[in-house]
């Protein structure tokens, strides 16, 4: 465990873990202790989830903006685009049908 690279990389993992843990505790606390309105809570939970998504992609899956991760990043972004179209479309269509039933 004397290798400086090892220590630096381990620190990055621990940092990611700490951030992820914090971003988990906050939404749970919001729901349990219930400060603010429901709308605010939904916004908070969504923001924490998205932030944690980025944290985990960055620190655990090592996805970043560097050249050699470009293909993986493009792939993930393209997938998110298609998944967005499909899932938002699904919720839109079926929500619209539910309202009209």
């Amino acid at each position: 465990m004397r290798n400086p690279d090892f220590k630096a990389e381990l620190r990055a993992y621990l940092l990611g873990f700490g951030l992820a843990l914090a971003l988990t505790v906050v939404p749970f606390a919001v729901v349990v202790f219930g400060p603010g309105t429901q709308g605010l809570a939904i916004i908070l939970i969504t923001l924490c989830a998205l932030a944690q998504l980025v944290v985990q992609l960055r620190y655990f899956l090592h996805l970043d903006l560097s050249e050699q991760k470009r293909e993986d990043l493009h792939l993930v972004l393209f997938t998110v685009l298609l998944l967005g179209i499909m899932s938002i479309g699904t919720i839109w269509i079926l929500g619209n049908l539910a309202i009209r039933m």
Partner: peptide
């Protein structure tokens, strides 16, 4: 290829969703 993911509802126009959809 991308547009093909944006058109699936045209297979069920008559299912009852609103005209806007």
């Amino acid at each position: 290829a991308v547009l093909s993911f944006c058109v699936w509802l045209h297979h069920f126009f008559t299912m009852g969703q609103s005209a806007n959809v």
